[in-house]
Every structure is written in C-alpha cells, then in structure tokens.
Design a protein around this nucleic acid. Sequence first.
DNA 1: TTGACGATAGTCT
DNA 2: GACTATCGTCAAC
Length: 196
Amino acid sequence: MKLPSEFYLQSDVKKIARHLLGKILCTNVKGIYTSGIISETEAYEGKTDKASHAWNGRFTERTQTMYEQGGIVYVYLCYGLHNMFNVITNVKDIPHAILIRAVQPVEGIEHMEARKGASSTVKNFSIGPGNVCKIMGIDRQHNGVSLEGNNIWIEDRKIRIPSNHIQITPRIGIDYAEEDTARLNRYVLKNNKYYL
DNA sequence: TTGACGATAGTCT
DNA sequence: GACTATCGTCAAC
C-alpha cells in the first residue's frame, strides 16, 4: 500500500504532484495514528524556480534536505509559527519538492481535533499547509524523515481521480517569485468540500 | 552579529 | 476584507 521509493524518484515533479492527489497521507506521531486524503499540492521545480528555496542552486543548512534523494520529508517554519510539509522528489542533488496544501481527514479525526483545538466541522479545518501540519502532528523534527519509515508515509488505496476533477492553477502566496508566480504548478481536487 | 522578511492563520472590523 | 502575531533563516555588514 505504501508508495514505492521509485514513485518519488521520477523526474517530472509536476506529474508527481498531480498523482499525489487522492493518495493517503498517514502519520504516526507519539503513538497517535492519523490519515487523510491529499487534496491539494504544489510543485516546486528546484533550481529553475524562483519560488523554490533552492532556486539557482541555493544551498544552505535549511535547504540541504531538498537536495537529498526523493522519498523524504522537508519541513520548515514559515512566519515564525507555521510548519510547512513538503515531499522531496527526484534523485540526489535535484532539489524538487511538493508542498501539501490540503488534506481530507480520514482516520483519527478526534486526534486531529485535539491537536488543533477545534471541531473538524470548522471551515478550513484541514485546508492550508500550516493546518495540514498541525492536524497531522508534523513539525520540524520530521525534517529529513524517510517516507519509507513508520512515522510519516503515503499510501495508495486505489482512489481514482478522473482528470476532469483536477483543477490546475497558479501557485499562491509567492508574489516574490516574479515571473515564476504564474507557473501552473498547483493541483486541486475539485468537487470536494475539503478544498477552498 | 544583525536586520529584514516570509510557500500563513486567526482574529477583528 | 484588512490587520498582525511571531521567530527561524539567510545574506549583508
């Protein structure tokens, strides 16, 4: 059921981002198991993408995770308080990443509610990259963790997403990226109450 | 060593 | 719809 490591090694990060829709993101943090269907992703195309932390080959202590081989997790802090969860793809030294922006809660919903301190019926309960991390229990301790391990992984439960249920749009929240802001790298599951 | 700023979310009008 | 909390990172000094 777990996605094989080959899935993350593919070279087309946009294609992977599209195929992640409908997959199940699972976490087991501090003995608590939760899972959700991935319903929104964004692809970041490494060195050639100004919106990426690794643009133009930028390499720092923080971004070194992105240069590892695909199949690991990249988590970092934004605005001083929000964790962002990314899946690293492609082979070593190609810093491709996919930001998970939204999920649809499946298992362990009561634990998600406890983590967030709110009912799952509230608007935006699981929408937005910061919220995804919060309800799934993901934080910066998980940076660099393998998706083949038993803390965070992604399963294929054979949920088929018809291509006409996928909406492709420009990415958001990256106005600083100049011309790359307009790239159509965002994939959203349509007809789904768990998306905006 | 320091300062400017961000792949946001929640709150208040 | 606008406003701001809040701090790790990074690049410049």
